[in-house]
């Protein structure tokens, strides 16, 4: 099939160039994390002269980046745990039972997909203030759960509907309770869909900047993207430290992505591709 036509060469060149432009910035970011200012300015493209950990030590000793990282991990993990629990429960009810308001309940959840919650930031701010949840990680988490429910219910309802009814029926005949059928028989089968829904929501929560920017003011409660913006301002002349900070902030999700690229791509394009 492969022919060296001008078209084929052009397409290959395009891919090669594009790959370079996409990947090289990360290479420079990681290399610069080990360089001093002078070395970055003198030889931006070269490999670092030595594996100098000064920048990374300075970040760990002088800044709160580790705290921001822990906050982001805590908020993302707890949001996803609650989101998947609530979302799966609701989706299971909608997908596996017939009841009078079923279509309306489903529409109620799915309509949330059309609502850009960012534009409701003012009422959310007032709402959190009333509930005494302003400037708390719990408040942020509850908003992320609410924001993720429409897509989670949508994905899981679609998947749970496709599961065959026979397993459920035979367990019911043998006298298993509804809760037991759901927990032990049906939900283990729904794991792939839960992974997709989990990743689709975990990535935007981990990366979110807007809600913390508005809701969180106490430094020790800030999330990683928010804390990073503070850090970038404080060290703005110290490029080695800046690149080291960006590298530390980017690495956790980059490593997860490289390990689970198939699931990440499927999760983040779910809904956009069939």
């Amino acid at each position: 099939m492969k022919r060296f036509t001008p078209g084929a060469v052009a397409v290959q060149t395009l891919l090669l160039l594009n790959g370079l432009v996409m990947l090289y910035p990360f290479v420079v970011m990681l290399m610069s994390a080990f360089k001093s200012n002078a070395e970055i300015f003198a030889s931006p493209f070269a490999l670092p002269e030595s594996l100098d950990l000064t920048n990374i030590h300075r970040i760990l000793d002088e800044t709160d980046l580790a705290t921001y990282l822990a906050n982001s991990a805590l908020i993302t993990a707890s949001s996803i745990a609650v989101l998947l629990t609530f979302g799966t429960m609701a989706a299971y009810a909608i997908a596996r039972y017939t009841f009078r308001l079923r279509e309306i309940v489903f529409f109620f959840f799915v309509a949330g997909l059309m609502v850009p919650l960012k534009l409701a930031i003012i009422p959310l701010f007032i709402q959190l203030d009333v509930l005494h949840l302003l400037d708390t990680r719990l408040g942020l988490m509850l908003i992320y759960v609410a924001m993720g429910l429409p897509s989670t219910v949508f994905i899981l309802t679609g998947f749970l509907r496709t599961l065959p009814g026979e397993l459920e029926e035979s367990a019911r005949i043998e006298g298993a309770s509804e809760a037991r059928i759901m927990w032990q028989i049906m939900l283990p089968l729904a794991r792939p869909a839960m992974v997709i829904a989990g990743i689709q929501n975990a990535v935007p929560i981990w990366n979110d900047f807007f809600f913390p920017l508005v809701f969180i003011t106490t430094d020790s409660r800030k999330t990683l993207p928010q804390g990073l913006s503070v850090f970038m301002g404080e060290y703005n002349t110290d490029w080695g430290v800046l690149f080291a900070g960006l590298s530390l902030a980017a690495l956790p999700i980059m490593i997860c992505y490289i390990a689970l690229s198939r699931q990440f791509i499927a999760g983040l394009t779910a809904g956009a591709v069939k």
Partner: peptide, 13 residues
């Protein structure tokens, strides 16, 4: 995998 890599990062980074 490479072309999708930036997509998973925060706009802040």
């Amino acid at each position: 995998v490479i072309v999708f890599l930036p997509v998973v990062l925060s706009a802040v980074i």
